[in-house]
Design a protein around this nucleic acid. Structure first.
Lengths: 214, 214
DNA sequence: GCCGTCCTGGTTGTGCACAACTTTCGTCCC
DNA sequence: GGGACGAAAGTTGTGCACAACCAGGACGGC
């Protein structure tokens, strides 16, 4: 991979993480100059990364004003979740990858991290674990297109869900999350990827239900 | 919409069309300078559009070499089609929009254009009609996220399918396409969006079957 | 004849200076 | 005192010059 490409990817991924982990909550104004100097580049490559984030709807740049982190209204959130449900289930159908020993080790590790989270609930840790676990869920399918699409949708709305966490019961959310990972571990041990996908679907659905009580 | 945004969109859409209509077949080298002068801008805004095309996988820029239109191997094509099948069917489930009189006029017009195409088969006209019809199919769902995702996948692979057309029977492909639109018209007249989505799914599936005989 | 080297033309990537634009705040007129 | 106007500061968008890089060919040594 070329130097330029790798730098672009680094900037893009880092900024995307900061946005979705609420280091930059919706409405934050990102300064091109400040970010460029932080990352040790000029504005040009940084603008390339911001442009991609804008194309994907995570920020919006307005001439003379600034680059602002976007918010998402409930209507769009509902549509995106409706689609994510279906995609989650599809991970069990579209070229599923048989669970290997490595897969089982991974899910075991996730469960361990879940226990640690329940013992000491923290929104930031929750968000990071959730993001990692999402990526793990996608890795169960061998369909690249499905992975790309699902990842895109996840990052499109993850920050909104996280923003609502303080208004929910953090401890309870952590417990539910741990439960999901435990159920998934059971399914994977039984080598039932279909079941694992359904579990994922069910929990995304319930998560949105709890979210939309506001 | 700002001046810059509208220009960006114009460049992006125009280049994407040219790529997917095979005005620029896979492997073509796009010159930033030439395109910039054609569109009457400097390289900077043009590079913004090319960068987006690269992020979406339609071109690849290599330092010192050029910007090349990508090709797609059969494996990726299969995965993308597998996903497109599911998404096509979902347009019948995820906030389907009831067929109005305007909808019926539209599909009637498509059938008319289909008849004209069958009378005088032409790859370029075929491609244009197919692209318009694809957009029409998406408009039957009110789910923005689904539309975005499906459109992205369509443009990702449309040129590959079109590239294979000369190796198939053009007249037969046109006839099949017309048939699909006629069947869809019947479904829409019956206000059965579920059926319309299944017809779309079936034809995408069969289209890929014919395609992958090579 | 063959291989390695260097040079040259052409392309994308980067940095910088400036243009275009928006917001805010101060000032002046009424 | 209120409102309109304008200047100023700060931001993103654009154009340009140059750096970095790659492919191909000429050239010379062997």
């Amino acid at each position: 991979m070329s130097e330029a490409t790798s730098r672009h990817l680094r900037l893009y991924v880092e900024l995307r993480s900061r946005i979705c982990l609420l280091d930059y909550p919706p409405g934050t104004r990102l300064s091109e100059e400040a970010l460029a100097s932080e990352f040790g580049t000029s504005r040009t490559p940084l603008r390339r990364a911001l442009a991609r984030l804008e194309d994907e709807g995570l920020v919006v740049s307005r001439h003379g004003v600034g680059t602002l982190v976007t918010d998402v209204e409930i209507g769009e959130l509902a549509q995106t979740y409706a689609l994510r449900l279906e995609l989650a289930q599809l991970t069990g159908h579209l070229s599923p990858r048989p669970a290997t020993a490595a897969t089982l080790d991974e899910i075991k590790d996730f469960v361990a991290r879940g226990h640690a989270l329940v013992a000491c609930p923290d929104p930031r840790v929750f968000a990071g674990l959730n993001m990692d676990y999402h990526r793990f869920g996608l890795s169960l399918s061998g369909n690249d297109a499905l992975r790309d699409v699902a990842e895109r949708l996840y990052f499109r709305t993850a920050r909104i869900w996280l923003k609502a966490i303080p208004r929910l019961d953090l401890a309870e959310e952590c417990a539910i999350f741990l439960e999901e990972m435990q159920q998934t571990e059971t399914a994977l041990r039984a080598h039932d990827l279909h079941a694992a996908a359904l579990i994922r679907r069910a929990h995304i659905s319930m998560s949105f239900q709890r979210l939309s009580t506001f």
